[in-house]
Design a protein around this nucleic acid. Structure first.
Lengths: 340, 340
DNA sequence: TAAATAAACTAAATCGTTTTACTATATAAT
DNA sequence: ATTATATAGTAAAACGATTTAGTTTATTTA
């Protein structure tokens, strides 16, 4: 009853050839290894007829390659990451690699666990959005010759491959855009995580407001409160003080909370305020008013990441080629930021 | 320079014990196998000090278990699937399983490829939203004693474990809700895919309209046109004919297209029409007007799927326990469907 | 005191591939 | 008639774990 999976051994004994011969033929090395055409045909016909599938675990053990790449982000269900994941998945499949997605919740402990876990599994490469305290773990991967590409953020003190966008410039432009549209009391709503991409966005905002001699209003919501009532209260508070006439959200989940707060507490305000957000989302095209967004070039990011990854996978001398790619984000102007 | 990964062999020779002993200790069987406390301690201390990680590929080859579950959906970047994926991921990690996510694009060829691929990789189980033509492949997995759980839809002629919602009833209720709110010309916008969940939703709509003696207006958009101009044109057409006063979208990506079309062609209409959609989305709480949705119980679905999966993984006699779970969806009433 | 039992380990087979280093026969070159 | 070369394969080691069936020494038991 219990159908056992067939192995090369079984094919070999069935066809009266050696395991080696079967292996050669299945790997397309029949000709090269001087196996006769008739034997090649015999093996091909039979394996096809029974739909033989070699055991890739055994193959991996022998070759040391698993053809699996890990893609680790904060939360795979977040729009930005999910879209990126989808593109990465396709690029990888084209080159016969599979992608293991996982969410680290921006938590060091979980990140470390995941890295160890996949390292044990001998995955061929890591694409990671690092949480702030895992510099050592990344370094250790690199020391062990494992291909690593970071994105969205990086560690200043670590020579690694990474793909990011120019957050400061993008943030500056977005703020300037609000200023150009006549807004004078622009709030910047962000989280308290002290990661480079967030700090750069803050910097961009501050430089733009300073240059225009505007007061800056920064709200840093503790990361753990982002999705809670507490976070909403904080947003609600800042909106209703200081004569805020515009808001710049530093990341998409904050925007979502923010719009909800507005809707609940003061719906009319949505059409009065200037609104810009980091990270685009289908939602913002459909929202009323449509929301102006700093759109990260998803496709380009994915392509750059995979270009580096495939390059790393194809060589032994990993360190020779540390690539740092900085892409430009696009400001997509919509109704929410035009002069009122 | 090239740091080689250590193996049990290396630990054993370093500590002058056998590989067997090291293996026993690392697997927590030291006591049971009568290894002395001092040897146990020696091995534990050393492996911890060098942060030794056993090769899980070798382990998998030997044990036949990979501790990997595949989660295959239409498109991992779709809101519904992404959210579900996130919950599944957590449930799996709690039991020490990893999840491989992949997108089959609702395409048979791709589905088959993916199934073969992961079967070769000896994954321990499959959670699948099946495209319509892979009944044989699913059957073959089951014959090979691989745990399989389908969800969202299933094959009538195949005895499999599955988790679905009661689409017909949910659809009926949603339609009835529109009727109760005084809408009389309700359009049902769906795709042409002839899969059971879509057919059931259509059936629910038709039964409700029939019962109320209303004319039914069904638009079936070819699956390939869903995201194209052609699809939008079709939506635009139906909205502007037949005196439609309400729309029921059969799935979330159609709703997104639909709302966009409305916004582009006739923004005022959004507040006139009754609108209900299948599948909730954060977007719908924030949209103006807020959109009434049939919400699938994500958490419950994930839990039921994993309950079945873990049950299957823990036994040998797979067929004894075919479980068919039908859950109830919730109608979340919002502004878009109240009497105008 | 000899036999039985327990304690503390270990050798070697096994999982299913890949790959190196042969072997045996046939043909060509000198 | 030998030697060299090509053809058509194969045996066996290796990857790194788990696990069965021992072995050796020490301690009880009869």
């Amino acid at each position: 009853m219990k159908k056992k999976r067939l192995a090369l051994k079984d094919i070999a004994s069935k066809l009266n050839v050696s395991i080696t011969t079967v292996s050669f033929v299945l790997n397309g090395k029949g000709k090269e290894k001087k196996i006769s055409d008739e034997v090649i045909k015999k093996i091909q016909d039979y394996t096809e007829s029974i739909n033989f599938r070699p055991n890739l675990v055994a193959q991996s053990l022998r070759t040391g390659k698993t053809k699996i790449i890990v893609f680790m982000v904060e939360d795979i269900s977040n729009y930005f990451f999910a879209k990126l994941a989808r593109i990465i998945e396709d690029l990888a499949y084209d080159k016969d690699y599979k992608v293991l997605f996982c969410s680290n919740e921006n938590d060091d402990k979980r990140s470390k666990e995941l890295i160890n876990l996949f390292y044990e599994r001998q995955v061929d490469g890591f694409i990671i959005i690092p949480s702030s305290g895992i510099e050592e773990d990344i370094k250790s991967l690199i020391n062990n010759r494992v291909p690593v590409v970071l994105f969205d953020r990086y560690f200043k003190s670590l020579e690694t491959n990474y793909v990011i966008i120019n957050n400061k410039v993008a943030s500056q432009n977005a703020t300037q855009h609000l200023i150009d549209n006549g807004f004078k009391n622009i709030a910047f709503i962000t989280t308290d995580v002290r990661q480079i991409q967030m700090l750069d966005r803050l910097k961009g905002y501050e430089e733009a407001t300073n240059k225009a001699n505007l007061v800056s209003h920064v709200l840093q919501i503790p990361f753990k409160d982002v999705d809670s009532e507490r976070g909403k209260d904080m947003i609600s508070y800042i909106i209703n003080h200081n004569n805020i006439d515009a808001i710049f959200f530093s990341t998409n989940y904050l925007t979502q909370s923010g719009l909800e707060v507005l809707k609940e507490t003061n719906p009319a305000l949505i059409n009065e305020l200037g609104i810009v957000t980091f990270d685009d989302n289908d939602l913002f095209r459909i929202h009323t008013p449509t929301i102006t967004a700093v759109a990260q070039p998803l496709k380009e990011i994915a392509q750059e990441i995979m270009k580096i990854m495939f390059d790393l996978l194809s060589r032994d001398d990993l360190n020779l080629s540390v690539k740092k790619i900085v892409l430009t984000a696009n400001l997509i102007q919509r109704d929410s930021s035009i002069s009122k």
